[in-house]
Write a protein that binds this DNA or RNA. Structure first.
Lengths: 225, 225
DNA sequence: GCTAAAAATTCTGCATACAGTTTTGTAAAA
DNA sequence: TTTTACAAAACTGTATGCAGAATTTTTAGC
């Protein structure tokens, strides 16, 4: 029932994670089928999986779009992410090897390089990778799966609600996280992770009346009814 | 892309939650298609959704079976459930209405009735319903979705690893939970919930060398290779 | 009678055709 | 010029047919 690798799923997931697909973008079955040279059947399977991870919205008889997240949902997603990231980093501190720390540092190094050369997309992508790597170290497949759904949703939130002019880059906070993981100081790590999420949320326009220039964000949930 | 209600999905989900389908049971596409008078396309969509919730396992070219959970996975699932149930009950204490408490009590009452007349299936079913209701009160759709995947997986674990002769019934603990939710005593509620999960886990054979008479559990993951 | 190879059957994986719905485009009427 | 009605195009939802893999049954050999 499953192919070895589901290219459509992976590419769309990556594109959303890296903010190359804006919320509201239509994902027509036939277009994707053409692009990836597969039948609509395969595309439908991919879209179904993406919709289960809530990064794509399936509207009956109206096709799939990249999900738009409401302010309320955004707050729920951040709440859930705090819960999961706390559990994950606690497990990661228990389970990590020297090898894992090296892998984390390598990601941070690449993040720094991206920031310095102004490669925003790759930076966002690597930031997700950093959090995924911690989840991998935590080695709880259930939490990892949940986490895997929350991270790209955070990307969508940032795409919709980021305050103008703020570049999203937190490689220094990631570096600090690696250090406290090495020290195995759980309390410090958790509070650092919470602050890290605070900082991401603070850069958003989740409280003010919507000043966004993204129509999809403004009218999310209107067109669908 | 989605029908109003997906009958195949709902019925299989319910059957697994209520332990009417044992781990390892084959779910042939054509059989299900016949039973529900739909085409294989619809069945495939349902099986795909169930596999995303990890209650059904899709084996390439070998069809779908009700998932078998290994001891290691079981521990991960219980770990994740503790995290989520803690977060959910904390939210439920903040958000609940008098109406919600009545609904919870109604479920507990039905649970008691089931126990007294020895209706095991309905009892298991209602026990899940009780936890789902708390999740609904918590009103965080992300946590609810995760929870919705963990609860039927717990059913599968119990089906595989429950110690012989132990009837699974916890309506008294559920009643105690309703009372502490009413009192809004968060600490008590969380520790009660953790103890509740402890008691469920204690009734399982997760530590000893497998004494289970369920071949599917014993040989889970062998036949598939 | 037992084992092993081969044939037949069953079932999944995928593409595609068709029906029904939504959307788009056009033209007439206000 | 704007609005409304109608027609056409585009797209989704579902069923189904076919190819190929896995499983079962049959058959031949020991």
């Amino acid at each position: 029932m499953l192919e070895n690798r589901d290219l459509v799923y992976e590419h769309v997931y990556e594109a959303i994670l890296g903010q190359k697909l804006a919320p509201g973008t239509r994902l027509s079955e036939e277009s994707l089928a053409d692009i990836f040279s597969v039948s609509r059947t395969i595309v439908r399977r991919s879209l179904l999986k993406l919709s289960h991870e809530q990064v794509v919205q399936l509207r009956p008889n109206k096709g799939a779009i990249v999900a738009s997240v409401s302010v309320d949902e955004s707050k729920q997603i951040f709440f859930a992410r705090r819960i999961v990231e706390k559990a994950i980093i606690e497990l990661a501190i228990e389970n990590h090897s020297e090898q894992d720390l090296k892998a984390l540092l390598s990601i941070v190094k690449q993040e720094k390089a991206c920031f310095e050369r102004g490669d925003r997309y790759a930076g966002i992508r690597l930031s997700g990778e950093f959090h995924f790597k911690i989840a991998e170290i935590a080695a709880n497949s259930q939490l990892t799966k949940f986490h895997r759904s929350l991270v790209p949703q955070t990307s969508l939130i940032i795409a919709q609600y980021e305050k103008r002019g703020i570049t999203h880059c937190s490689y220094d906070e990631h570096l600090a996280l690696v250090n406290v993981i090495r020290e195995k100081s759980t309390l410090k790590a958790v509070s650092l992770m919470m602050e890290h999420l605070d900082h991401i949320e603070e850069k958003l326009n989740l409280d003010e009346l919507c000043l966004s220039d993204d129509l999809h964000a403004v009218f999310a949930g209107i067109k669908d009814n």
